[in-house]
Protein backbone atom coordinates (compact mmCIF):
# COMPACT_ATOMS: atom_id res chain seq x y z
CA UNK A 1 0.00 0.00 0.00
CA UNK A 2 3.10 2.20 0.12
CA UNK A 3 2.52 3.52 -3.41
CA UNK A 4 -0.72 5.13 -2.29
CA UNK A 5 0.97 7.26 0.36
CA UNK A 6 1.80 10.81 -0.61
CA UNK A 7 5.24 12.33 -0.11
CA UNK A 8 5.44 15.70 1.63
CA UNK A 9 5.91 17.46 -1.73
CA UNK A 10 2.98 15.62 -3.30
CA UNK A 11 0.81 16.46 -0.32
CA UNK A 12 1.73 20.12 -0.57
CA UNK A 13 1.05 20.21 -4.31
CA UNK A 14 -2.24 18.37 -3.89
CA UNK A 15 -3.33 20.86 -1.25
CA UNK A 16 -2.28 23.78 -3.44
CA UNK A 17 -4.12 22.41 -6.48
CA UNK A 18 -7.24 21.74 -4.42
CA UNK A 19 -7.10 25.32 -3.12
CA UNK A 20 -6.86 26.54 -6.70
CA UNK A 21 -9.58 24.21 -7.95
CA UNK A 22 -12.05 25.10 -5.21
CA UNK A 23 -11.14 28.79 -5.54
CA UNK A 24 -11.93 28.70 -9.26
CA UNK A 25 -15.06 26.70 -8.57
CA UNK A 26 -16.28 29.37 -6.13
CA UNK A 27 -15.59 32.15 -8.62
CA UNK A 28 -17.33 30.36 -11.50
CA UNK A 29 -20.23 29.28 -9.30
CA UNK A 30 -20.88 32.89 -8.41
CA UNK A 31 -21.20 33.55 -12.16
CA UNK A 32 -23.31 30.52 -12.95
CA UNK A 33 -25.84 30.83 -10.12
CA UNK A 34 -25.56 34.59 -9.74
CA UNK A 35 -24.89 34.41 -6.04
CA UNK A 36 -21.67 34.73 -4.12
CA UNK A 37 -20.49 31.59 -2.39
CA UNK A 38 -17.59 30.88 -0.06
CA UNK A 39 -15.73 27.58 -0.19
CA UNK A 40 -13.36 26.88 2.66
CA UNK A 41 -9.85 25.59 2.00
CA UNK A 42 -10.35 21.89 1.34
CA UNK A 43 -9.38 19.43 4.02
CA UNK A 44 -7.67 16.35 2.57
CA UNK A 45 -7.72 13.05 4.40
CA UNK A 46 -6.85 9.45 3.60
CA UNK A 47 -8.73 6.69 5.36
CA UNK A 48 -9.67 3.04 4.97
CA UNK A 49 -12.81 2.43 2.94
CA UNK A 50 -14.42 0.58 5.82
CA UNK A 51 -13.96 3.60 8.05
CA UNK A 52 -16.23 5.89 6.07
CA UNK A 53 -18.95 5.95 8.70
CA UNK A 54 -16.46 6.80 11.43
CA UNK A 55 -14.93 9.48 9.20
CA UNK A 56 -18.32 11.05 8.47
CA UNK A 57 -19.43 10.87 12.10
CA UNK A 58 -16.29 12.76 13.11
CA UNK A 59 -16.76 15.37 10.40
CA UNK A 60 -20.45 16.06 10.81
CA UNK A 61 -22.20 17.80 13.66
CA UNK A 62 -24.22 15.10 15.39
CA UNK A 63 -26.77 17.62 16.66
CA UNK A 64 -27.87 18.90 13.28
CA UNK A 65 -30.25 17.20 10.87
CA UNK A 66 -28.92 16.87 7.35
CA UNK A 67 -30.24 16.11 3.93
CA UNK A 68 -27.64 14.27 1.92
CA UNK A 69 -27.29 14.46 -1.85
CA UNK A 70 -25.12 11.85 -3.49
CA UNK A 71 -23.68 11.71 -6.98
CA UNK A 72 -21.12 9.42 -8.54
CA UNK A 73 -18.33 10.73 -10.74
CA UNK A 74 -16.49 8.37 -13.06
CA UNK A 75 -13.20 9.01 -14.74
CA UNK A 76 -9.59 8.40 -13.84
CA UNK A 77 -10.69 10.31 -10.78
CA UNK A 78 -13.72 8.41 -9.54
CA UNK A 79 -15.84 8.03 -6.48
CA UNK A 80 -18.81 9.47 -4.75
CA UNK A 81 -19.68 13.05 -3.86
CA UNK A 82 -21.78 13.68 -0.76
CA UNK A 83 -23.34 17.04 -0.12
CA UNK A 84 -24.75 17.67 3.35
CA UNK A 85 -27.30 20.46 3.56
CA UNK A 86 -29.20 21.52 6.67
CA UNK A 87 -32.46 19.56 6.59
CA UNK A 88 -34.67 22.62 6.30
CA UNK A 89 -32.70 24.59 3.71
CA UNK A 90 -34.83 23.31 0.82
CA UNK A 91 -37.33 26.16 1.10
CA UNK A 92 -34.63 28.83 0.79
CA UNK A 93 -33.08 27.03 -2.16
CA UNK A 94 -36.39 26.88 -4.04
CA UNK A 95 -36.54 30.67 -4.17
CA UNK A 96 -32.82 30.93 -4.78
CA UNK A 97 -33.12 28.85 -7.91
CA UNK A 98 -36.42 30.35 -9.00
CA UNK A 99 -37.96 26.89 -9.12
CA UNK A 100 -41.23 28.10 -7.62
CA UNK A 101 -42.10 29.55 -11.04
CA UNK A 102 -41.83 26.16 -12.70
CA UNK A 103 -45.46 25.23 -12.24
CA UNK A 104 -48.42 25.80 -10.02
CA UNK A 105 -47.27 23.82 -7.07
CA UNK A 106 -49.73 22.48 -4.58
CA UNK A 107 -48.55 22.02 -1.03
CA UNK A 108 -48.16 18.27 -1.41
CA UNK A 109 -45.76 18.89 -4.27
CA UNK A 110 -43.83 21.49 -2.31
CA UNK A 111 -41.86 18.84 -0.45
CA UNK A 112 -40.85 17.35 -3.80
CA UNK A 113 -39.88 20.79 -5.09
CA UNK A 114 -37.68 21.42 -2.06
CA UNK A 115 -36.04 18.06 -2.56
CA UNK A 116 -35.44 18.83 -6.25
CA UNK A 117 -33.96 22.23 -5.33
CA UNK A 118 -31.44 20.55 -3.03
CA UNK A 119 -30.58 18.03 -5.73
CA UNK A 120 -30.12 20.86 -8.22
CA UNK A 121 -27.76 22.72 -5.88
CA UNK A 122 -25.90 19.47 -5.30
CA UNK A 123 -25.51 18.82 -9.01
CA UNK A 124 -23.99 22.25 -9.68
CA UNK A 125 -21.76 22.40 -6.58
CA UNK A 126 -20.44 18.89 -7.13
CA UNK A 127 -20.00 19.50 -10.86
CA UNK A 128 -18.09 22.71 -10.17
CA UNK A 129 -15.67 21.21 -7.65
CA UNK A 130 -15.06 17.89 -9.39
CA UNK A 131 -14.92 19.66 -12.77
CA UNK A 132 -12.26 22.16 -11.69
CA UNK A 133 -10.06 19.59 -9.97
CA UNK A 134 -10.14 17.19 -12.91
CA UNK A 135 -9.62 20.05 -15.38
CA UNK A 136 -6.45 21.09 -13.55
CA UNK A 137 -5.20 17.51 -13.68
CA UNK A 138 -6.32 16.83 -17.24
CA UNK A 139 -9.12 14.35 -16.70
CA UNK A 140 -12.72 14.36 -17.88
CA UNK A 141 -15.40 12.61 -15.82
CA UNK A 142 -18.96 11.39 -16.25
CA UNK A 143 -21.66 11.96 -13.64
CA UNK A 144 -24.60 9.88 -12.48
CA UNK A 145 -27.86 11.69 -11.84
CA UNK A 146 -27.71 13.10 -8.31
CA UNK A 147 -30.19 11.81 -5.79
CA UNK A 148 -31.25 12.21 -2.23
CA UNK A 149 -29.60 9.60 -0.04
CA UNK A 150 -32.05 7.90 2.26
CA UNK A 151 -29.62 5.86 4.32
CA UNK A 152 -27.78 7.72 7.02
CA UNK A 153 -24.21 7.86 5.78
CA UNK A 154 -22.95 7.64 9.34
CA UNK A 155 -23.90 4.02 9.55
CA UNK A 156 -23.52 2.77 6.00
CA UNK A 157 -20.66 1.74 3.77
CA UNK A 158 -19.16 2.97 0.52
CA UNK A 159 -20.47 1.12 -2.54
CA UNK A 160 -18.43 -2.04 -3.11
CA UNK A 161 -18.23 -1.69 -6.88
CA UNK A 162 -16.11 1.46 -6.56
CA UNK A 163 -14.51 0.98 -3.19
CA UNK A 164 -13.03 -2.47 -2.61
CA UNK A 165 -13.19 -3.49 1.04
CA UNK A 166 -9.85 -2.92 2.73
CA UNK A 167 -8.68 -0.37 0.13
CA UNK A 168 -7.90 3.25 0.80
CA UNK A 169 -10.06 6.23 0.00
CA UNK A 170 -9.30 9.93 -0.16
CA UNK A 171 -11.70 12.55 1.09
CA UNK A 172 -11.65 16.18 0.06
CA UNK A 173 -13.92 18.23 2.27
CA UNK A 174 -15.00 21.84 1.94
CA UNK A 175 -17.47 23.89 3.92
CA UNK A 176 -19.57 26.10 1.66
CA UNK A 177 -21.61 29.12 2.57
CA UNK A 178 -24.18 31.03 0.54
CA UNK A 179 -23.78 34.43 2.09
CA UNK A 180 -27.07 36.07 1.15
CA UNK A 181 -29.13 33.01 2.03
CA UNK A 182 -27.18 32.10 5.17
CA UNK A 183 -26.98 28.46 4.17
CA UNK A 184 -23.93 26.50 5.27
CA UNK A 185 -23.18 22.92 4.32
CA UNK A 186 -20.40 20.45 3.68
CA UNK A 187 -19.22 18.83 0.50
CA UNK A 188 -17.23 15.58 0.56
CA UNK A 189 -15.56 14.22 -2.55
CA UNK A 190 -14.57 10.67 -1.74
CA UNK A 191 -12.42 9.00 -4.38
CA UNK A 192 -11.19 5.41 -4.44
CA UNK A 193 -7.73 3.87 -4.30
CA UNK A 194 -7.27 3.85 -8.09
CA UNK A 195 -7.89 7.58 -8.02
CA UNK A 196 -5.18 8.02 -5.41
CA UNK A 197 -2.68 6.28 -7.68
CA UNK A 198 -3.87 8.39 -10.61
CA UNK A 199 -3.61 11.57 -8.49
CA UNK A 200 0.07 10.81 -7.84
CA UNK A 201 0.76 10.43 -11.56
CA UNK A 202 -1.26 13.49 -12.44
CA UNK A 203 0.50 15.59 -9.80
CA UNK A 204 3.88 14.61 -11.25
CA UNK A 205 2.65 15.42 -14.75
CA UNK A 206 1.45 18.79 -13.49
CA UNK A 207 4.92 19.61 -12.15
CA UNK A 208 6.60 18.47 -15.34
CA UNK A 209 5.03 21.33 -17.29
CA UNK A 210 7.16 23.70 -15.21
CA UNK A 211 10.47 21.87 -15.80
Amino acid sequence: MSETRFSATEKDLLQELMNIGFGQAAADLAQVIGLSIKLSIPDIQLFKTCELSRHMTEEMDGEQEFSLIEQYFLGKFQGIALLALPARSGKKLVTLFGLQDQCNWSSENLAMLEKEAMIEVGNILIGACVGKITELLNDVVLYSPPRMRIQDVRDSNLPNNLFAPGSLAISLKTVFHFERKKITGQLFLIANQDSIAWLKTALNAFMEQYE
Partner: peptide, 8 residues
Protein backbone atom coordinates in the same frame (compact mmCIF):
# COMPACT_ATOMS: atom_id res chain seq x y z
CA UNK B 1 -1.75 35.60 -6.86
CA UNK B 2 -5.03 33.87 -6.16
CA UNK B 3 -7.54 31.42 -7.58
CA UNK B 4 -10.41 33.36 -6.06
CA UNK B 5 -11.31 35.78 -8.82
CA UNK B 6 -14.82 36.61 -7.62
CA UNK B 7 -15.64 40.29 -8.22
CA UNK B 8 -15.84 40.89 -4.49
Amino acid sequence: ATANIQPK
